[in-house]
Amino acid sequence: MYPASFDYHTPGSVQEAISLLGKLRDDAKLLAGGHSLIPMMKLRLAQPKHLIDLRKVPGLAGIREDGGSIALGAMTTHWQVESSKLLQAKIPVVSDAAGMIGDPQVRNLGTIGGSLAHADPAADMPAVMIALGVEFVIEGARGRRTVKVDDFFKGLMMTAVGPDEILVEIRVPVPPAGSGAAYLKFPHPASRFAVVGVCAALTVDGKGICTKAGVGVTGAGTKAVRAKGVEAGLAGKALDQAAIEAAAAKAADGVDVQADLQGSAEYKSHLLRVHARRAIEAALGRAKGGK
């Protein structure tokens, strides 16, 4: 409940934050909403010597449409994502998933960028990001670079964001007409993190053939991953029940499922398959419904 001492910095620009990161190195942590970091500091599981708070950096929060994408500033809170009319209209699954994170108070301060850069293996949003095929805009001393979601999650709480870089924006492509997506999770009864979570994003053509499938899974393993087997079972197919079930059966393939108090690896693999099927069914319903 009583974090260790640290020095506190409030840079006024991304560049200033980056140069602080460069100078302070491993002793420093970036602070966005703080809802992943501060609990760890209170238990003294994290004891950074410096905190670099991004709250005074202009331009890091907000949701805007930019060409065929919606750009989410890294400091946009989960509540802003949850309640965004733009997202609800264009990519509702992102708002839906944001509304399942933590609890209302957590969503008011926790940020999408902070959460994604923290890369908790049981976080919700990574599965959605994978399914939608987003891109991450990362800024460092040498300028900005863009990283595709498949190259972003590197391992347990590890991402492509370098030690002196900052995640500044997430670009979510607006799905074409005939698309639908759904995120379903099996929440931990206490923490509300995902024991498993599956996001399915589908596009179907006029004949009911799935032209594009994105499926991301979270919770069960050490990092969120793309369920390639499921996607392969969906793309190019007419999605009848048999096809859906066959595809969903691959949901745990390639996931390093971890056993814990919530269940065995076998059980969690099973949950992944069930949630994949249900998410696909829900996504398909929405795709056919026009969203």
């Binding site: 602070l31 703080g34 501060i38 708070d53 957590v106 008011n108 301060l109």
Partner: peptide, 13 residues
């Protein structure tokens, strides 16, 4: 204007 958990915010923030 928003409900937050005051145990999860530093006073300086």
């Amino acid at each position: 204007g928003q409900a937050v958990k005051a145990c999860n915010v530093f006073a300086v923030q």
